[in-house]
Write a protein that binds this DNA or RNA. Structure first.
Lengths: 243, 243
DNA sequence: TGCGTTCCATGACCTAGATCAACCGATGAC
DNA sequence: GTCATCGGTTGATCTAGGTCATGGAACGCA
Protein backbone atom coordinates (compact mmCIF):
# COMPACT_ATOMS: atom_id res chain seq x y z
CA UNK A 1 0.00 0.00 0.00
CA UNK A 2 1.47 3.32 -1.11
CA UNK A 3 0.92 6.39 1.03
CA UNK A 4 1.15 9.41 -1.21
CA UNK A 5 -0.18 12.91 -0.86
CA UNK A 6 -2.10 13.60 -4.01
CA UNK A 7 -4.96 15.72 -5.17
CA UNK A 8 -8.36 14.15 -5.32
CA UNK A 9 -8.65 13.49 -9.03
CA UNK A 10 -9.41 16.79 -10.68
CA UNK A 11 -10.47 18.67 -7.54
CA UNK A 12 -9.01 22.15 -7.73
CA UNK A 13 -7.74 21.99 -4.17
CA UNK A 14 -5.79 19.42 -2.28
CA UNK A 15 -8.53 18.16 -0.03
CA UNK A 16 -7.91 17.99 3.66
CA UNK A 17 -10.89 15.78 3.18
CA UNK A 18 -11.18 12.20 2.21
CA UNK A 19 -8.30 11.30 -0.02
CA UNK A 20 -5.12 12.83 1.34
CA UNK A 21 -3.40 9.47 1.57
CA UNK A 22 -5.01 7.42 -1.14
CA UNK A 23 -3.13 5.98 -4.07
CA UNK A 24 -4.12 5.85 -7.73
CA UNK A 25 -6.43 2.85 -7.56
CA UNK A 26 -8.30 4.21 -4.60
CA UNK A 27 -8.65 7.62 -6.17
CA UNK A 28 -10.19 5.98 -9.22
CA UNK A 29 -12.81 4.39 -7.00
CA UNK A 30 -13.50 7.69 -5.25
CA UNK A 31 -13.78 9.48 -8.57
CA UNK A 32 -16.46 7.07 -9.72
CA UNK A 33 -18.88 8.32 -7.08
CA UNK A 34 -17.81 11.94 -7.20
CA UNK A 35 -19.54 14.96 -8.71
CA UNK A 36 -19.56 18.72 -8.26
CA UNK A 37 -22.34 21.06 -7.23
CA UNK A 38 -22.47 24.84 -7.16
CA UNK A 39 -24.68 27.05 -5.06
CA UNK A 40 -25.36 30.76 -5.05
CA UNK A 41 -24.83 32.92 -2.00
CA UNK A 42 -27.85 32.54 0.27
CA UNK A 43 -29.00 29.29 -1.28
CA UNK A 44 -29.86 26.40 1.00
CA UNK A 45 -27.93 23.19 0.34
CA UNK A 46 -30.25 21.06 2.49
CA UNK A 47 -32.85 21.67 5.14
CA UNK A 48 -32.68 19.93 8.47
CA UNK A 49 -34.75 16.74 8.29
CA UNK A 50 -34.53 16.45 4.51
CA UNK A 51 -33.00 13.61 2.62
CA UNK A 52 -29.26 14.01 2.10
CA UNK A 53 -27.91 11.41 -0.28
CA UNK A 54 -24.34 12.66 -0.45
CA UNK A 55 -21.38 13.65 1.65
CA UNK A 56 -19.15 16.44 0.44
CA UNK A 57 -16.17 18.64 0.99
CA UNK A 58 -16.04 22.35 0.32
CA UNK A 59 -13.98 23.36 -2.69
CA UNK A 60 -14.55 27.10 -2.54
CA UNK A 61 -16.86 29.44 -0.67
CA UNK A 62 -18.40 29.22 2.75
CA UNK A 63 -21.38 27.40 4.22
CA UNK A 64 -22.92 27.20 7.66
CA UNK A 65 -24.62 24.47 9.68
CA UNK A 66 -27.45 25.85 11.76
CA UNK A 67 -29.96 24.42 14.21
CA UNK A 68 -33.35 26.07 14.58
CA UNK A 69 -35.74 25.80 17.52
CA UNK A 70 -39.48 25.69 17.06
CA UNK A 71 -39.89 29.32 18.08
CA UNK A 72 -37.23 30.44 15.63
CA UNK A 73 -34.19 30.80 17.85
CA UNK A 74 -31.17 29.82 15.78
CA UNK A 75 -27.70 28.59 16.69
CA UNK A 76 -24.93 27.97 14.23
CA UNK A 77 -23.16 24.70 15.02
CA UNK A 78 -20.69 24.48 12.15
CA UNK A 79 -18.83 26.80 9.83
CA UNK A 80 -17.59 25.18 6.64
CA UNK A 81 -14.56 26.71 4.98
CA UNK A 82 -12.74 25.32 1.94
CA UNK A 83 -11.50 21.76 2.53
CA UNK A 84 -14.04 21.13 5.33
CA UNK A 85 -16.25 18.09 5.19
CA UNK A 86 -20.04 17.80 5.61
CA UNK A 87 -22.33 14.90 5.79
CA UNK A 88 -22.77 11.92 7.97
CA UNK A 89 -22.12 8.43 6.71
CA UNK A 90 -24.75 6.19 8.27
CA UNK A 91 -27.56 8.75 8.43
CA UNK A 92 -29.75 9.66 5.53
CA UNK A 93 -31.44 12.82 6.70
CA UNK A 94 -29.64 16.07 7.42
CA UNK A 95 -29.55 17.06 11.08
CA UNK A 96 -28.98 20.76 10.39
CA UNK A 97 -29.76 23.41 7.83
CA UNK A 98 -26.78 23.76 5.49
CA UNK A 99 -26.71 27.19 3.86
CA UNK A 100 -24.26 28.74 1.43
CA UNK A 101 -23.30 32.18 2.74
CA UNK A 102 -21.16 32.95 -0.29
CA UNK A 103 -21.11 31.35 -3.71
CA UNK A 104 -20.14 27.79 -3.02
CA UNK A 105 -18.68 24.81 -4.85
CA UNK A 106 -18.79 21.41 -3.23
CA UNK A 107 -17.16 18.16 -4.20
CA UNK A 108 -19.84 15.59 -3.45
CA UNK A 109 -19.70 11.82 -3.13
CA UNK A 110 -22.84 9.72 -3.54
CA UNK A 111 -23.58 8.43 -0.06
CA UNK A 112 -24.32 4.73 -0.54
CA UNK A 113 -21.20 3.87 -2.56
CA UNK A 114 -19.13 6.17 -0.36
CA UNK A 115 -20.19 4.19 2.69
CA UNK A 116 -19.06 1.08 0.89
CA UNK A 117 -15.68 2.72 0.23
CA UNK A 118 -15.30 3.49 3.92
CA UNK A 119 -15.82 -0.15 4.67
CA UNK A 120 -13.16 -1.31 2.24
CA UNK A 121 -10.65 1.55 2.19
CA UNK A 122 -8.99 1.98 5.58
CA UNK A 123 -7.25 5.16 4.44
CA UNK A 124 -10.55 6.86 3.86
CA UNK A 125 -12.12 5.82 7.13
CA UNK A 126 -9.02 6.83 9.08
CA UNK A 127 -8.86 10.18 7.37
CA UNK A 128 -12.52 10.66 8.18
CA UNK A 129 -11.91 9.73 11.80
CA UNK A 130 -9.09 12.27 12.08
CA UNK A 131 -11.24 14.99 10.57
CA UNK A 132 -14.17 14.17 12.80
CA UNK A 133 -11.96 14.27 15.88
CA UNK A 134 -10.69 17.67 14.79
CA UNK A 135 -14.23 18.88 14.41
CA UNK A 136 -15.12 17.55 17.82
CA UNK A 137 -12.22 19.50 19.30
CA UNK A 138 -13.40 22.61 17.50
CA UNK A 139 -16.95 22.06 18.76
CA UNK A 140 -15.69 21.81 22.32
CA UNK A 141 -13.66 24.99 21.99
CA UNK A 142 -16.83 26.59 20.67
CA UNK A 143 -18.75 25.31 23.70
CA UNK A 144 -16.31 27.10 25.99
CA UNK A 145 -16.90 30.25 23.97
CA UNK A 146 -20.69 29.93 24.14
CA UNK A 147 -20.85 29.01 27.80
CA UNK A 148 -18.26 31.23 29.42
CA UNK A 149 -16.96 34.06 27.27
CA UNK A 150 -18.20 37.66 27.32
CA UNK A 151 -19.57 39.30 24.18
CA UNK A 152 -16.29 41.12 23.58
CA UNK A 153 -14.28 37.93 24.01
CA UNK A 154 -16.62 36.10 21.65
CA UNK A 155 -16.14 38.67 18.90
CA UNK A 156 -12.37 38.72 19.34
CA UNK A 157 -12.32 34.91 19.28
CA UNK A 158 -14.35 34.75 16.08
CA UNK A 159 -12.09 37.20 14.30
CA UNK A 160 -9.06 35.24 15.47
CA UNK A 161 -10.55 31.95 14.30
CA UNK A 162 -11.28 33.29 10.84
CA UNK A 163 -7.91 35.00 10.60
CA UNK A 164 -6.15 31.77 11.51
CA UNK A 165 -8.11 29.74 9.00
CA UNK A 166 -7.27 31.79 5.97
CA UNK A 167 -3.88 32.82 7.26
CA UNK A 168 -2.55 29.46 6.19
CA UNK A 169 -2.74 30.82 2.66
CA UNK A 170 -0.95 34.11 3.22
CA UNK A 171 2.31 35.11 4.85
CA UNK A 172 2.45 37.44 7.81
CA UNK A 173 5.66 38.84 9.18
CA UNK A 174 5.61 39.04 12.92
CA UNK A 175 1.83 38.73 13.21
CA UNK A 176 1.41 42.42 12.44
CA UNK A 177 -1.23 43.97 10.23
CA UNK A 178 -3.04 40.75 9.63
CA UNK A 179 -5.90 41.26 7.21
CA UNK A 180 -9.23 39.43 7.32
CA UNK A 181 -12.34 39.61 5.22
CA UNK A 182 -15.27 38.52 7.33
CA UNK A 183 -17.27 36.05 5.29
CA UNK A 184 -20.35 36.50 7.51
CA UNK A 185 -23.03 39.12 8.01
CA UNK A 186 -23.50 40.57 11.50
CA UNK A 187 -26.54 38.36 11.83
CA UNK A 188 -24.62 35.20 10.92
CA UNK A 189 -21.95 36.18 13.43
CA UNK A 190 -24.62 36.56 16.09
CA UNK A 191 -25.88 33.06 15.28
CA UNK A 192 -22.35 31.76 15.56
CA UNK A 193 -21.72 33.43 18.92
CA UNK A 194 -25.05 33.08 20.69
CA UNK A 195 -25.61 36.85 20.72
CA UNK A 196 -27.93 39.34 19.03
CA UNK A 197 -26.78 41.19 15.97
CA UNK A 198 -26.96 44.51 17.83
CA UNK A 199 -24.48 43.26 20.42
CA UNK A 200 -22.19 42.02 17.66
CA UNK A 201 -22.27 45.42 15.98
CA UNK A 202 -21.63 47.27 19.23
CA UNK A 203 -18.71 45.08 20.25
CA UNK A 204 -17.06 45.37 16.85
CA UNK A 205 -17.35 49.14 17.18
CA UNK A 206 -15.87 48.93 20.68
CA UNK A 207 -12.88 46.88 19.48
CA UNK A 208 -12.36 49.44 16.73
CA UNK A 209 -12.51 52.39 19.15
CA UNK A 210 -10.00 50.63 21.39
CA UNK A 211 -7.60 50.17 18.48
CA UNK A 212 -7.65 46.37 18.56
CA UNK A 213 -8.93 46.23 14.99
CA UNK A 214 -9.31 48.64 12.10
CA UNK A 215 -12.25 48.48 9.73
CA UNK A 216 -12.44 49.32 6.06
CA UNK A 217 -15.97 49.11 4.72
CA UNK A 218 -18.15 46.71 6.68
CA UNK A 219 -16.34 43.42 6.39
CA UNK A 220 -12.68 44.14 5.82
CA UNK A 221 -10.59 44.10 8.99
CA UNK A 222 -6.96 44.86 9.71
CA UNK A 223 -5.46 43.63 12.96
CA UNK A 224 -2.46 45.80 13.86
CA UNK A 225 -1.22 43.41 16.57
CA UNK A 226 -2.54 39.89 16.58
CA UNK A 227 -1.32 39.31 20.14
CA UNK A 228 -3.59 42.02 21.46
CA UNK A 229 -6.57 40.48 19.70
CA UNK A 230 -5.77 37.13 21.29
CA UNK A 231 -5.64 38.75 24.72
CA UNK A 232 -9.10 40.17 24.11
CA UNK A 233 -10.24 36.70 23.06
CA UNK A 234 -9.07 35.26 26.39
CA UNK A 235 -7.61 32.59 24.15
CA UNK A 236 -4.99 30.53 25.92
CA UNK A 237 -4.93 27.73 23.37
CA UNK A 238 -1.40 27.11 22.19
CA UNK A 239 -2.29 27.25 18.52
CA UNK A 240 -2.58 30.95 19.22
CA UNK A 241 -0.18 32.31 16.65
CA UNK A 242 -0.55 32.49 12.94
CA UNK A 243 1.81 30.39 10.85
CA UNK B 1 -14.96 -11.90 8.50
CA UNK B 2 -17.56 -12.65 11.15
CA UNK B 3 -19.67 -9.83 12.52
CA UNK B 4 -20.82 -10.82 15.96
CA UNK B 5 -21.95 -8.78 18.90
CA UNK B 6 -19.83 -9.95 21.78
CA UNK B 7 -18.54 -8.59 25.02
CA UNK B 8 -15.06 -7.18 25.02
CA UNK B 9 -13.15 -10.01 26.66
CA UNK B 10 -13.94 -9.95 30.34
CA UNK B 11 -15.39 -6.44 30.44
CA UNK B 12 -18.44 -6.47 32.67
CA UNK B 13 -20.47 -4.52 30.17
CA UNK B 14 -21.05 -4.89 26.48
CA UNK B 15 -19.08 -1.93 25.25
CA UNK B 16 -20.74 0.47 22.93
CA UNK B 17 -17.11 1.33 22.57
CA UNK B 18 -14.47 -0.25 20.47
CA UNK B 19 -15.32 -3.85 19.94
CA UNK B 20 -19.01 -4.21 19.21
CA UNK B 21 -18.39 -5.97 15.91
CA UNK B 22 -15.05 -7.66 16.41
CA UNK B 23 -14.60 -11.38 16.17
CA UNK B 24 -12.53 -13.70 18.37
CA UNK B 25 -9.15 -13.02 16.81
CA UNK B 26 -9.57 -9.31 16.90
CA UNK B 27 -10.76 -9.38 20.50
CA UNK B 28 -7.60 -11.27 21.41
CA UNK B 29 -5.52 -8.50 19.93
CA UNK B 30 -7.54 -5.86 21.76
CA UNK B 31 -7.20 -7.78 25.00
CA UNK B 32 -3.43 -7.75 24.70
CA UNK B 33 -3.29 -3.99 25.10
CA UNK B 34 -6.14 -3.72 27.59
CA UNK B 35 -6.08 -3.06 31.32
CA UNK B 36 -8.42 -1.70 33.97
CA UNK B 37 -8.09 1.36 36.19
CA UNK B 38 -10.22 2.49 39.11
CA UNK B 39 -10.63 6.00 40.42
CA UNK B 40 -12.30 7.39 43.52
CA UNK B 41 -15.00 10.02 43.35
CA UNK B 42 -13.36 13.40 42.91
CA UNK B 43 -10.09 12.00 41.64
CA UNK B 44 -8.58 13.47 38.50
CA UNK B 45 -7.91 10.98 35.71
CA UNK B 46 -5.71 13.40 33.73
CA UNK B 47 -5.09 17.11 33.70
CA UNK B 48 -5.36 19.09 30.52
CA UNK B 49 -1.93 19.27 28.89
CA UNK B 50 -0.59 16.19 30.61
CA UNK B 51 0.61 13.07 28.89
CA UNK B 52 -2.20 10.62 28.18
CA UNK B 53 -0.83 7.30 26.98
CA UNK B 54 -4.12 5.46 26.79
CA UNK B 55 -7.61 5.61 25.39
CA UNK B 56 -10.45 4.12 27.39
CA UNK B 57 -14.11 3.41 27.74
CA UNK B 58 -16.13 3.84 30.91
CA UNK B 59 -17.17 0.59 32.58
CA UNK B 60 -18.98 2.06 35.59
CA UNK B 61 -19.30 5.46 37.19
CA UNK B 62 -19.25 8.93 35.72
CA UNK B 63 -16.52 11.28 34.58
CA UNK B 64 -16.47 14.77 33.11
CA UNK B 65 -14.34 16.56 30.52
CA UNK B 66 -13.78 20.18 31.46
CA UNK B 67 -11.97 23.11 29.92
CA UNK B 68 -10.54 25.81 32.17
CA UNK B 69 -9.64 29.38 31.23
CA UNK B 70 -6.66 31.16 32.71
CA UNK B 71 -8.81 33.16 35.08
CA UNK B 72 -10.58 30.05 36.36
CA UNK B 73 -13.80 30.08 34.36
CA UNK B 74 -14.75 26.50 33.65
CA UNK B 75 -16.91 24.85 31.01
CA UNK B 76 -17.73 21.19 30.89
CA UNK B 77 -17.41 19.87 27.32
CA UNK B 78 -18.11 16.19 27.85
CA UNK B 79 -20.02 13.96 30.23
CA UNK B 80 -18.86 10.35 30.25
CA UNK B 81 -21.39 7.73 31.26
CA UNK B 82 -20.85 3.96 31.17
CA UNK B 83 -19.90 2.75 27.68
CA UNK B 84 -18.67 6.18 26.59
CA UNK B 85 -15.23 6.55 25.10
CA UNK B 86 -12.42 8.99 26.00
CA UNK B 87 -9.10 9.66 24.46
CA UNK B 88 -7.81 10.78 21.17
CA UNK B 89 -5.83 8.51 18.92
CA UNK B 90 -3.16 10.62 17.27
CA UNK B 91 -2.64 13.09 20.14
CA UNK B 92 -0.52 12.36 23.13
CA UNK B 93 -1.53 15.09 25.54
CA UNK B 94 -4.97 15.48 27.05
CA UNK B 95 -6.92 18.50 25.80
CA UNK B 96 -9.25 18.63 28.82
CA UNK B 97 -9.31 17.83 32.51
CA UNK B 98 -10.88 14.42 32.98
CA UNK B 99 -12.36 14.06 36.46
CA UNK B 100 -14.20 11.18 38.11
CA UNK B 101 -17.37 12.57 39.69
CA UNK B 102 -18.32 9.21 41.17
CA UNK B 103 -16.22 6.12 41.78
CA UNK B 104 -15.10 5.11 38.33
CA UNK B 105 -13.80 2.05 36.52
CA UNK B 106 -12.32 2.44 33.08
CA UNK B 107 -11.29 -0.12 30.53
CA UNK B 108 -8.09 1.31 29.08
CA UNK B 109 -6.11 0.47 25.96
CA UNK B 110 -2.45 1.42 25.64
CA UNK B 111 -2.37 4.15 23.06
CA UNK B 112 0.50 3.23 20.74
CA UNK B 113 -0.59 -0.37 20.08
CA UNK B 114 -4.21 0.74 19.94
CA UNK B 115 -3.35 3.17 17.14
CA UNK B 116 -1.74 0.27 15.33
CA UNK B 117 -4.94 -1.74 15.75
CA UNK B 118 -6.97 1.08 14.24
CA UNK B 119 -4.72 0.96 11.22
CA UNK B 120 -5.14 -2.76 10.71
CA UNK B 121 -8.66 -3.46 12.03
CA UNK B 122 -11.29 -1.69 9.95
CA UNK B 123 -14.02 -2.74 12.38
CA UNK B 124 -12.38 -0.82 15.18
CA UNK B 125 -11.76 2.33 13.17
CA UNK B 126 -15.31 2.30 11.79
CA UNK B 127 -16.78 1.79 15.23
CA UNK B 128 -14.68 4.67 16.48
CA UNK B 129 -15.85 6.86 13.60
CA UNK B 130 -19.49 6.11 14.42
CA UNK B 131 -18.98 6.93 18.07
CA UNK B 132 -17.11 10.13 17.27
CA UNK B 133 -19.89 11.24 14.92
CA UNK B 134 -22.43 10.57 17.67
CA UNK B 135 -20.39 12.67 20.06
CA UNK B 136 -20.17 15.45 17.50
CA UNK B 137 -23.95 15.42 17.20
CA UNK B 138 -24.26 15.57 20.98
CA UNK B 139 -21.76 18.44 21.13
CA UNK B 140 -23.80 20.38 18.57
CA UNK B 141 -27.03 19.82 20.50
CA UNK B 142 -25.14 21.07 23.52
CA UNK B 143 -24.06 24.18 21.60
CA UNK B 144 -27.69 25.00 20.91
CA UNK B 145 -28.39 24.65 24.62
CA UNK B 146 -25.44 26.89 25.60
CA UNK B 147 -26.09 29.53 22.99
CA UNK B 148 -29.83 29.91 22.93
CA UNK B 149 -31.68 28.26 25.80
CA UNK B 150 -32.86 30.01 28.96
CA UNK B 151 -31.69 28.85 32.39
CA UNK B 152 -34.95 27.00 32.97
CA UNK B 153 -34.74 25.28 29.59
CA UNK B 154 -31.15 24.34 30.26
CA UNK B 155 -32.02 22.64 33.54
CA UNK B 156 -34.99 20.81 32.04
CA UNK B 157 -32.81 19.68 29.13
CA UNK B 158 -30.10 18.36 31.41
CA UNK B 159 -32.57 16.35 33.48
CA UNK B 160 -34.09 14.96 30.27
CA UNK B 161 -30.68 14.01 28.89
CA UNK B 162 -29.71 12.14 32.04
CA UNK B 163 -33.12 10.50 32.31
CA UNK B 164 -32.86 9.29 28.72
CA UNK B 165 -29.37 7.93 29.16
CA UNK B 166 -30.12 5.68 32.11
CA UNK B 167 -33.66 5.00 31.01
CA UNK B 168 -32.34 2.48 28.54
CA UNK B 169 -31.77 0.25 31.55
CA UNK B 170 -35.19 0.56 33.15
CA UNK B 171 -38.74 0.22 31.91
CA UNK B 172 -41.22 3.06 32.08
CA UNK B 173 -44.86 2.65 31.32
CA UNK B 174 -46.25 5.60 29.47
CA UNK B 175 -43.38 7.93 30.40
CA UNK B 176 -44.95 8.58 33.80
CA UNK B 177 -43.12 8.84 37.10
CA UNK B 178 -39.71 8.54 35.57
CA UNK B 179 -37.05 8.45 38.26
CA UNK B 180 -33.56 9.95 37.94
CA UNK B 181 -30.62 10.18 40.31
CA UNK B 182 -28.57 13.18 39.32
CA UNK B 183 -24.95 12.09 39.21
CA UNK B 184 -23.72 15.70 39.45
CA UNK B 185 -23.46 18.36 42.13
CA UNK B 186 -25.14 21.69 41.53
CA UNK B 187 -21.72 23.10 40.73
CA UNK B 188 -21.00 20.43 38.11
CA UNK B 189 -24.42 21.10 36.59
CA UNK B 190 -23.58 24.78 36.38
CA UNK B 191 -20.34 23.92 34.57
CA UNK B 192 -22.30 21.75 32.17
CA UNK B 193 -24.89 24.42 31.45
CA UNK B 194 -22.84 27.60 31.39
CA UNK B 195 -24.63 28.98 34.47
CA UNK B 196 -23.75 29.74 38.08
CA UNK B 197 -24.61 27.21 40.75
CA UNK B 198 -27.04 29.68 42.36
CA UNK B 199 -29.03 29.89 39.16
CA UNK B 200 -29.06 26.11 38.88
CA UNK B 201 -30.36 25.83 42.43
CA UNK B 202 -33.05 28.45 41.90
CA UNK B 203 -34.29 26.94 38.65
CA UNK B 204 -34.50 23.46 40.13
CA UNK B 205 -36.58 24.93 42.94
CA UNK B 206 -38.77 26.69 40.40
CA UNK B 207 -39.38 23.48 38.42
CA UNK B 208 -40.28 21.78 41.71
CA UNK B 209 -42.70 24.55 42.72
CA UNK B 210 -44.33 24.32 39.28
CA UNK B 211 -44.82 20.58 39.65
CA UNK B 212 -42.64 19.62 36.71
CA UNK B 213 -40.36 17.58 38.95
CA UNK B 214 -40.47 16.22 42.50
CA UNK B 215 -37.37 16.07 44.66
CA UNK B 216 -36.43 13.60 47.36
CA UNK B 217 -33.22 14.56 49.14
CA UNK B 218 -30.91 16.64 46.97
CA UNK B 219 -30.27 14.45 43.98
CA UNK B 220 -33.21 12.07 43.59
CA UNK B 221 -35.82 13.32 41.12
CA UNK B 222 -39.21 11.99 40.06
CA UNK B 223 -40.73 13.28 36.85
CA UNK B 224 -44.52 12.87 36.99
CA UNK B 225 -45.01 13.56 33.26
CA UNK B 226 -41.99 13.34 31.01
CA UNK B 227 -43.80 15.22 28.23
CA UNK B 228 -44.15 18.28 30.39
CA UNK B 229 -40.44 18.22 31.18
CA UNK B 230 -39.64 18.05 27.47
CA UNK B 231 -41.85 21.07 26.84
CA UNK B 232 -39.90 22.98 29.45
CA UNK B 233 -36.70 21.87 27.77
CA UNK B 234 -37.88 23.36 24.45
CA UNK B 235 -36.64 20.08 23.09
CA UNK B 236 -37.98 19.35 19.64
CA UNK B 237 -35.51 16.61 18.82
CA UNK B 238 -37.36 13.52 17.71
CA UNK B 239 -35.53 11.21 20.12
CA UNK B 240 -37.67 12.94 22.67
CA UNK B 241 -39.31 9.99 24.28
CA UNK B 242 -37.92 7.38 26.57
CA UNK B 243 -37.70 3.80 25.37
C1' DT C 1 -20.18 16.56 71.83
C1' DG C 2 -18.51 19.89 69.40
C1' DC C 3 -16.40 21.37 65.09
C1' DG C 4 -15.15 21.53 60.38
C1' DT C 5 -16.41 20.79 55.75
C1' DT C 6 -19.32 20.03 51.88
C1' DC C 7 -23.42 20.78 49.45
C1' DC C 8 -27.42 23.29 48.91
C1' DA C 9 -31.17 27.09 49.27
C1' DT C 10 -32.54 31.71 49.19
C1' DG C 11 -32.49 36.83 49.67
C1' DA C 12 -30.81 41.57 47.97
C1' DC C 13 -28.74 43.83 44.57
C1' DC C 14 -26.37 44.81 40.08
C1' DT C 15 -24.85 44.50 35.29
C1' DA C 16 -24.17 42.49 30.62
C1' DG C 17 -26.59 41.82 27.07
C1' DA C 18 -31.45 41.62 25.08
C1' DT C 19 -35.16 44.31 23.27
C1' DC C 20 -37.33 48.01 20.90
C1' DA C 21 -36.72 51.69 17.90
C1' DA C 22 -34.80 55.15 14.84
C1' DC C 23 -31.78 56.04 11.26
C1' DC C 24 -28.12 55.67 7.44
C1' DG C 25 -25.95 54.32 3.05
C1' DA C 26 -25.75 51.22 -0.79
C1' DT C 27 -28.09 48.64 -4.21
C1' DG C 28 -31.44 47.40 -7.42
C1' DA C 29 -36.16 47.31 -9.56
C1' DC C 30 -39.59 49.77 -12.01
C1' DG D 1 -35.83 59.37 -10.25
C1' DT D 2 -38.27 57.17 -6.66
C1' DC D 3 -39.03 53.65 -3.66
C1' DA D 4 -38.08 49.35 -1.32
C1' DT D 5 -34.88 46.30 0.60
C1' DC D 6 -30.80 44.85 2.90
C1' DG D 7 -27.03 45.23 5.99
C1' DG D 8 -25.34 47.90 9.41
C1' DT D 9 -25.00 51.45 13.50
C1' DT D 10 -26.44 53.56 17.61
C1' DG D 11 -29.54 55.10 21.45
C1' DA D 12 -32.87 54.17 25.42
C1' DT D 13 -34.67 50.96 28.28
C1' DC D 14 -35.54 46.44 30.46
C1' DT D 15 -34.52 41.96 32.52
C1' DA D 16 -32.39 37.31 33.06
C1' DG D 17 -29.00 35.79 35.26
C1' DG D 18 -24.69 36.97 37.81
C1' DT D 19 -22.67 38.43 42.31
C1' DC D 20 -22.39 38.69 47.12
C1' DA D 21 -23.89 37.20 51.39
C1' DT D 22 -26.31 34.42 54.95
C1' DG D 23 -28.00 30.26 56.87
C1' DG D 24 -29.05 25.41 57.25
C1' DA D 25 -28.78 20.18 56.81
C1' DA D 26 -25.81 16.19 56.55
C1' DC D 27 -21.59 14.05 57.40
C1' DG D 28 -17.06 12.79 59.18
C1' DC D 29 -13.90 13.11 62.85
C1' DA D 30 -11.31 13.91 67.24
Amino acid sequence: MKFTHVDCGDCPIRHRAVCARCDGDELDRLNEVKYYRSFQAGQTVVWSGDQMDFVASVVSGIATLTQTMEDGRRQMVGLLLPSDFVGRPGRDTAAYDVVATTDLVMCCFRKKPFEELIRTMPNVSQRLLEMTLDELDAAREWMLLLGRKTAREKIASLIAIIARRDASLKLHENNENVVVDLPLTREAMSEYLGLTLETVSRQISALRKDGIIQIQGKRHITIPAFDRLLEEAADDSDGGYLV
